Amino acid sequence: MAYDEFLMTVTELGGYSEREDAARVTEAVISTLGDRLPPEIAEHVADQLPAPVDELIEGANSTPQNWGVQEFVHRVAEITGDHEEQAEEHSRAVLTAVAAQVTGGELNKLISDLPTGYAELFGHPELS
Protein backbone atom coordinates (compact mmCIF):
# COMPACT_ATOMS: atom_id res chain seq x y z
CA MET A 1 0.00 0.00 0.00
CA ALA A 2 1.29 3.43 -0.91
CA TYR A 3 1.43 6.32 1.54
CA ASP A 4 -1.58 8.04 -0.05
CA GLU A 5 -3.66 4.89 0.35
CA PHE A 6 -2.52 4.55 3.96
CA LEU A 7 -3.56 8.15 4.66
CA MET A 8 -6.89 7.55 2.94
CA THR A 9 -7.49 4.61 5.27
CA VAL A 10 -6.61 6.73 8.31
CA THR A 11 -8.85 9.52 7.00
CA GLU A 12 -11.78 7.14 6.68
CA LEU A 13 -11.21 5.38 10.00
CA GLY A 14 -10.74 8.63 11.89
CA GLY A 15 -13.44 10.58 10.08
CA TYR A 16 -11.02 13.39 9.19
CA SER A 17 -12.17 15.97 6.68
CA GLU A 18 -8.65 16.91 5.60
CA ARG A 19 -5.79 14.71 4.43
CA GLU A 20 -3.44 16.99 6.39
CA ASP A 21 -5.23 16.06 9.63
CA ALA A 22 -4.73 12.37 8.88
CA ALA A 23 -1.04 13.00 8.12
CA ARG A 24 -0.59 15.00 11.33
CA VAL A 25 -2.12 12.35 13.58
CA THR A 26 -0.36 9.56 11.71
CA GLU A 27 2.98 11.20 12.41
CA ALA A 28 2.13 11.64 16.10
CA VAL A 29 0.86 8.11 16.64
CA ILE A 30 3.53 6.31 14.61
CA SER A 31 6.44 8.20 16.17
CA THR A 32 4.99 7.51 19.63
CA LEU A 33 4.62 3.82 18.74
CA GLY A 34 8.23 3.80 17.58
CA ASP A 35 9.31 5.20 20.95
CA ARG A 36 7.35 2.44 22.69
CA LEU A 37 8.65 -0.55 20.70
CA PRO A 38 11.98 -2.36 20.90
CA PRO A 39 14.03 -1.50 17.79
CA GLU A 40 13.86 -5.02 16.31
CA ILE A 41 10.06 -5.11 16.45
CA ALA A 42 9.82 -1.54 15.14
CA GLU A 43 12.03 -2.56 12.22
CA HIS A 44 9.88 -5.57 11.35
CA VAL A 45 6.72 -3.48 11.46
CA ALA A 46 8.35 -0.67 9.46
CA ASP A 47 9.26 -3.15 6.72
CA GLN A 48 5.54 -3.58 6.04
CA LEU A 49 4.55 0.09 6.09
CA PRO A 50 4.79 2.64 3.27
CA ALA A 51 7.39 5.41 3.26
CA PRO A 52 7.50 7.81 5.08
CA VAL A 53 5.49 5.98 7.78
CA ASP A 54 8.21 3.34 7.97
CA GLU A 55 10.81 6.03 8.67
CA LEU A 56 8.74 7.47 11.53
CA ILE A 57 8.65 4.18 13.38
CA GLU A 58 12.29 3.25 12.69
CA GLY A 59 13.57 6.73 13.54
CA ALA A 60 12.16 6.63 17.03
CA ASN A 61 13.89 6.01 20.33
CA SER A 62 16.50 3.24 20.40
CA THR A 63 15.65 2.56 24.05
CA PRO A 64 12.02 1.41 24.14
CA GLN A 65 9.73 2.94 26.71
CA ASN A 66 7.48 0.87 28.94
CA TRP A 67 4.20 2.78 28.74
CA GLY A 68 0.75 1.41 29.17
CA VAL A 69 -2.11 2.54 26.94
CA GLN A 70 -2.96 5.60 29.03
CA GLU A 71 0.57 7.00 28.84
CA PHE A 72 0.71 6.23 25.13
CA VAL A 73 -2.51 8.18 24.57
CA HIS A 74 -1.28 10.98 26.82
CA ARG A 75 1.88 11.34 24.74
CA VAL A 76 -0.10 11.41 21.50
CA ALA A 77 -2.31 14.12 23.05
CA GLU A 78 0.78 16.15 23.95
CA ILE A 79 2.06 15.97 20.38
CA THR A 80 -1.26 16.74 18.68
CA GLY A 81 -2.47 19.28 21.23
CA ASP A 82 -5.80 17.44 21.49
CA HIS A 83 -7.67 16.12 24.53
CA GLU A 84 -6.82 12.58 25.51
CA GLU A 85 -10.21 11.29 24.34
CA GLN A 86 -9.48 12.62 20.86
CA ALA A 87 -5.91 11.31 21.01
CA GLU A 88 -7.29 7.86 21.77
CA GLU A 89 -9.48 8.08 18.67
CA HIS A 90 -6.46 9.20 16.63
CA SER A 91 -4.51 6.23 17.98
CA ARG A 92 -7.29 3.80 17.10
CA ALA A 93 -7.56 5.12 13.54
CA VAL A 94 -3.83 5.02 12.83
CA LEU A 95 -3.07 1.75 14.60
CA THR A 96 -6.03 0.02 12.94
CA ALA A 97 -4.57 1.13 9.60
CA VAL A 98 -1.20 -0.27 10.70
CA ALA A 99 -2.83 -3.58 11.68
CA ALA A 100 -4.35 -3.82 8.20
CA GLN A 101 -0.85 -3.56 6.69
CA VAL A 102 1.06 -5.91 8.95
CA THR A 103 0.94 -9.67 8.43
CA GLY A 104 -0.90 -11.74 11.01
CA GLY A 105 2.22 -13.26 12.54
CA GLU A 106 3.96 -9.91 12.82
CA LEU A 107 0.83 -8.32 14.29
CA ASN A 108 0.66 -11.07 16.91
CA LYS A 109 4.31 -10.46 17.86
CA LEU A 110 3.73 -6.73 17.99
CA ILE A 111 0.66 -6.93 20.21
CA SER A 112 2.14 -9.63 22.46
CA ASP A 113 5.09 -7.32 23.12
CA LEU A 114 2.73 -4.62 24.39
CA PRO A 115 0.71 -4.53 27.63
CA THR A 116 -2.97 -5.37 27.76
CA GLY A 117 -5.16 -2.79 26.08
CA TYR A 118 -3.06 -2.09 23.02
CA ALA A 119 -4.84 -4.81 21.03
CA GLU A 120 -8.01 -2.71 21.18
CA LEU A 121 -6.17 0.30 19.76
CA PHE A 122 -5.06 -1.91 16.86
CA GLY A 123 -8.70 -2.92 16.26
CA HIS A 124 -8.10 -6.49 17.48
CA PRO A 125 -9.45 -6.81 21.02
CA GLU A 126 -9.54 -10.59 20.56
CA LEU A 127 -5.72 -10.61 20.69
CA SER A 128 -5.65 -9.23 24.24
Rank of each mutant, 00 (worst) to 15 (best):
D113M: 04
G123W: 04
A22V: 07
P38W: 09
V29A: 01
K109A: 06
D35E: 15
E55A: 14
R75G: 04
G105C: 03
Y118S: 03
E84C: 15
E89G: 02
G68K: 08
R36N: 06
E120C: 00
A51R: 13
A97H: 07
A2I: 10
P115I: 02
E20D: 15
E18G: 05
P50C: 05
E78S: 15
A23Y: 11
A23N: 07
E20Y: 06
D47M: 13
V73A: 09
E43H: 05
V53Y: 08
T116Y: 08
E85Q: 11
E55L: 09
L121M: 01
E106I: 09
P125M: 08
A77S: 15
V98A: 06
A42M: 03
I79A: 03
N66A: 12
Q101I: 03
A22E: 12
H90A: 09
D54Q: 07
E58N: 10
E84W: 06
V102R: 03
I57P: 02
L37W: 08
T32M: 04
Q48T: 13
V53E: 01
K109Q: 01
R36G: 07
N66I: 08
D113S: 15
I111D: 00
A2T: 14
P115G: 04
E71I: 15
S17I: 09
G14M: 00
E84G: 10
G81R: 06
A42R: 00
E5S: 15
Q65M: 10
L56A: 02
A77P: 07
F6W: 03
V10T: 02
Y16L: 06
G14N: 04
P64S: 08
G104F: 01
P50E: 01
A100C: 10
L95C: 08
V29T: 01
T116N: 10
F6M: 13
V10C: 11
T116P: 04
W67D: 10
T80I: 08
T9A: 15
H83R: 15
T116F: 12
S31H: 02
G59R: 02
E89C: 01
M1S: 14
G105W: 01
V102A: 01
Q86L: 12
Q70L: 11
D21T: 00
A93V: 12
Q65F: 09
L107E: 03
E27S: 05
V29F: 00
T32W: 08
A119Q: 05
V98N: 04
T116K: 08
Q65S: 14
R19A: 13
A119L: 08
T96C: 07
D4Q: 15
E126R: 12
Y118I: 12
A2K: 09
E71Y: 09
E71F: 11
L33M: 14
A28Q: 02
V53Q: 06
D82I: 06
W67R: 12
Q70I: 14
M1G: 12
E106G: 07
V94M: 02
D54H: 06
S62W: 11
T103F: 02
E40F: 10
A97M: 05
E78C: 11
D47Y: 10
G15D: 09
E126W: 12
G14T: 05
I30R: 00
A23P: 01
G14R: 01
E40A: 07
N66D: 14
V102Y: 01
S112E: 07
E120F: 04
I30D: 03
A100F: 05
G68F: 08
G34N: 04
V94C: 03
N108A: 11
H90N: 13
G34D: 00
I79K: 11
I57W: 01
G14D: 00
